[in-house]
Amino acid sequence: MSWITAKRRRPVAGYVVVLLGLVLVGAVYATITGSGSSAAATDPAVSQAEIAQGRQIFEQTCATCHGLVAQGTSVAPSLIGVGAAAVDFQVSTGRMPLREPNAEAPRKPQQLTPAQTRAVAEYIQSLGGGPPIPTAAQVSTSGANLALGQELFTANCTQCHNFVGAGGALTYGKYAPALTASTPTQIYEAMVTGPEAMPVFNDTTVTPDEKRDIIAYVTAIRAQGNPGGFSLGRIGPVTEGIFAFLGLLFFMVLAAMWITAKQRKSANE
């Protein structure tokens, strides 16, 4: 080891140590988070009459994983009976087409246009039925009962999505996503179709009116300002504690250092 220590005074030694440190941290982090490799891009679609158009898009974009008639394969589930709502949710949030196999499909920019999305959704609906895309009236929040929405949200949603829909961890690298970007339609569709790990909350268990109440509460809460100041992510005491040390205590230490600093000799008699 002495050949290393013999060179420790060289100017490059400092940079090497920092580089090694970065590499070490990065390697450890990458090991415990796990990552996938990038995959191929998707193809754009051409448009015709809706269902036929949808079928075409489906065959080009989705069939490789989901099977030629959406019957499912070893890498993707069957889509027969999932309904237009499921397709609209997955595609409009950009989760589908899936870029890479991962613990969970993340929200990303939409790959298909809204018209194309609707076409594929109608095509899948035609194959086996299932929950349809909710109407505008079903996701309208006017006249909704916010109080009931809060109670329902607390009873059924906060345990995964957190008090304000900031998201939370699930097992094996999955997570309940934050609800900040979800449209009312997407929230409704998620509840009724139960994407990935999310349970299903169908219309006979959580009625459409109750779903509207929940949507009203979610959209109201996320739009609401923070009267107390910067929200620190609204995830609670963890970030508050970090600020208490790195903000408050650090500020106090700086003040203490100033108060007790030795004064320059020229200021003394």
């Binding site: 009873a155 349970p199 299903v200 169908n202 006979t204 009625t207």
Partner: peptide, 22 residues
Amino acid sequence: LVYGPNTPIRPGDFSSPGQMIT
């Protein structure tokens, strides 16, 4: 009773696999 609206529930209403409610 389903917590929240506090309404009773029939198995027929709770028929989609993957459903969970309090």
